[in-house]
Simulated assay, not measured.
Amino acid sequence: MPDDTTHADRLYWPDERVTKGDLAEYGRAVWRWMEPHVTDRPLTVLRCPDGVTGDSFFQRHPWKGMRPHIQSAVDPAGDPGRPLIAISDLDGLVELIHSAVLEVHVWNAPLADLEHPDRIVMDLDPGDDVGWSAVCDAAVDVRDRLDRAGLAAFVKTSGGRGLHVVAPLRPQADWAAVRAFAHALADAMAHDDPGRYVSTISKARRHGRILIDYLRNQRTATAVAPYSPRARPGAQVSMPLSWSDLASGAVPGDFTIMNTPAYLARRASDPWAGFHATSRALPG
């Protein structure tokens, strides 16, 4: 296990008094749930050397002084001089934290097959005046549409005000096909209920409605990883939920770096335990 004690008392979330050492302990506590969703796939990370109140920057390529358990990975279709980054174990996650990584975002394809996504992510991004119950209803709508298409659906908080509905795929269809499917789903929702949904990014059109963001489903795009913290006040995390959790009133603020390990310890089961086993082919 790498040494992460250097500057362990550095405050990353000052209002919540969450330190670098606290974040490393959080990473260890959630690793067995987080591991299947972050290992051996390209990452984009948000580094915040001075915590959430300081400057931050996204990074997807190796940097000078990068620690040994953070790996370089070649993208066959990318610039050979600019490899991607990845981790394969807990040591890698701890070394990301040591490098002031507060958020971990993942590709929808594994390193073993970068041209064939193994999941679809539908990001539900509400306008400022949209209530939480409406976001939950939208997630159920996405789930039902995916179910009718023959795909399983899982849900997690985004760590902000929205939800991600994620469908595991057999890695057979290419990026263009997966993006087209996600785009069609978003457009269908916006067409069927234009008072509630929009599928275009323009914030001006989002007033009172939920953006069904399908653009996570294109090559090099990423989505925040399950259990990743968010570099925002409150220290919330992107929390996988069961559909019954959602129906029973779970809200994003329920899940933070401070309380998630204890919450997971008392759960009867992992709501995403069957994620990979339910992978299905993209409908024709």
Rank of each mutant, 00 (worst) to 15 (best):
M1D: 06
P2S: 13
D4H: 12
D4A: 11
H7S: 13
R10V: 09
P14E: 02
D22Q: 10
E25M: 12
R28S: 13
P36I: 07
V38S: 01
V38T: 04
D40W: 10
P42E: 04
D50I: 06
G51K: 08
G54V: 09
H61Y: 01
K64T: 12
M66W: 02
P68G: 01
I70W: 02
S72C: 11
A73E: 02
D79S: 06
G81L: 03
P83K: 07
P83F: 02
A86K: 05
S88A: 14
V94H: 06
L96Q: 08
E103G: 09
V104W: 05
A112W: 00
E115C: 00
D118Y: 00
D123V: 01
D129K: 08
D129V: 08
V130F: 12
S133R: 14
S133L: 13
C136G: 12
A139N: 09
V140E: 14
D141N: 11
V142T: 09
D144E: 15
D147T: 15
A149L: 03
A149F: 03
A153R: 14
T157P: 05
S158Q: 07
S158V: 10
R161V: 08
G162M: 08
L163Q: 01
H164Y: 07
A167P: 05
A177Q: 11
V178A: 00
H191K: 10
D192P: 06
D192K: 03
Y197M: 06
S199P: 03
T200V: 15
K203C: 09
D213M: 06
R219F: 00
T220G: 01
A221L: 01
R230L: 06
P233M: 10
S238P: 06
P240Y: 12
L241N: 13
S242G: 13
S244K: 15
V251F: 02
G253Y: 07
G253N: 08
T260Q: 10
P261A: 15
Y263M: 14
A265T: 11
R266S: 15
R267L: 15
W272Q: 04
H276Y: 13
S279K: 12
